[in-house]
C-alpha cells in the first residue's frame, strides 16, 4: 500500500512522462517604469484616491502635524504604533501606544494605527508592508478601524514587477510576511454596490512624504 505522497507523485509522472517540454516562458511585459519621479508620485496619489482612500502629500517637516491632524479629523484617540516607530513623528497630545505584543482583542479597543510601508506601486495604487520596523506585525494594520500609512516618495515604484523585485530577498532570505494594501477593505456583494470597510480598516489615510512643499 503506497502513501498519498508517493501515489500522487507517481500519478503525475505517469501523466506527464514523455510529454514534450513546454516552450520557454517569455517575459516581454514591462519590467521598468519609464515615468519621471514626479509623474510616478502623481499617479500613485491619483490611484490610491480612486480606491476611496484619503491621500495627502506632505513635506517631511510637516509629517508630525499631518499625522496628528488626520487622527483628529477621524476622532481617533487611542492609537497603536509599531514597537520601534520613530519618536519624532509622535505628537504629545495623542495617546500613542507601542505594540509590545498587543493581543488582537486589545487592538480591537484602539481607534487607529499608524504605520510605514516598504514599497508602494504607482500603477495600482498599492502599499506593500513587510513587517519591517516601521510597519510592525500583520494584525496591527488590520484590526483597528483607521489605518494611517506613511509612504515616502522615494518608496514609490511604477510597476508591480519592480515592487516584487524589491521585496524578493525579504521573502526568500528572511521569510517575512507581506501584505499588499490597495484602498480600504471593501465588498461588492450586495447588488454589486461597493461598500468600504468590512473586516479590515474601513478608512485608509495615506500620507505621501516628500522633500518639497506640495
Amino acid at each position: 500500500m503506497s502513501d498519498a505522497r508517493s501515489q500522487i507523485l507517481d500519478r503525475i509522472r505517469t501523466a506527464t512522462g514523455g510529454a514534450a517540454a513546454p516552450p520557454e516562458s517569455r517575459r516581454e511585459y514591462r519590467h521598468h517604469d519609464e515615468r519621471s519621479h514626479a509623474e510616478r508620485v502623481e499617479l500613485f496619489c491619483e490611484r490610491v484616491g480612486d480606491y476611496q482612500a484619503e491621500v495627502k502629500r506632505v513635506h517631511r517637516d510637516q509629517l508630525r502635524a499631518a499625522i496628528r491632524n488626520a487622527l483628529k479629523r477621524h476622532q481617533a484617540k487611542r492609537v497603536a504604533i509599531p514597537a520601534s516607530f520613530p519618536q519624532a513623528w509622535l505628537s504629545p497630545s495623542v495617546e500613542f501606544i507601542h505594540d509590545q505584543g498587543l493581543t488582537a482583542r486589545e487592538l480591537d479597543g484602539f481607534d487607529a494605527v499608524v504605520t510605514g510601508c516598504s514599497v508602494a506601486i504607482a500603477e495600482t495604487g498599492t502599499i506593500v508592508t513587510t513587517g519591517g520596523q516601521y510597519e510592525g506585525r500583520r494584525l496591527l494594520s488590520l484590526v483597528p478601524d483607521l489605518h494611517i500609512c506613511i509612504v515616502s516618495e522615494s518608496q514609490i515604484v511604477g510597476l508591480v514587477p519592480e515592487a516584487l523585485a524589491q521585496v524578493q530577498l525579504l521573502v526568500s532570505r528572511q521569510r517575512r510576511p507581506l501584505t499588499f494594501i490597495s484602498g480600504p477593505s471593501a465588498t461588492s456583494d450586495i447588488e454589486l454596490e461597493r461598500v468600504e470597510g468590512v473586516h479590515g480598516p474601513r478608512k485608509l489615510v495615506v500620507l505621501v512624504v516628500g522633500e518639497e512643499n506640495p
Binding site: E123, R138, T179, F180, A186, G200
Partner: peptide, 8 residues
C-alpha cells in the same frame, strides 16, 4: 487594478 488585500 489591484484587489484591496493580498497576503503572502
Amino acid at each position: 487594478r489591484m484587489n484591496p488585500y493580498t497576503s503572502l
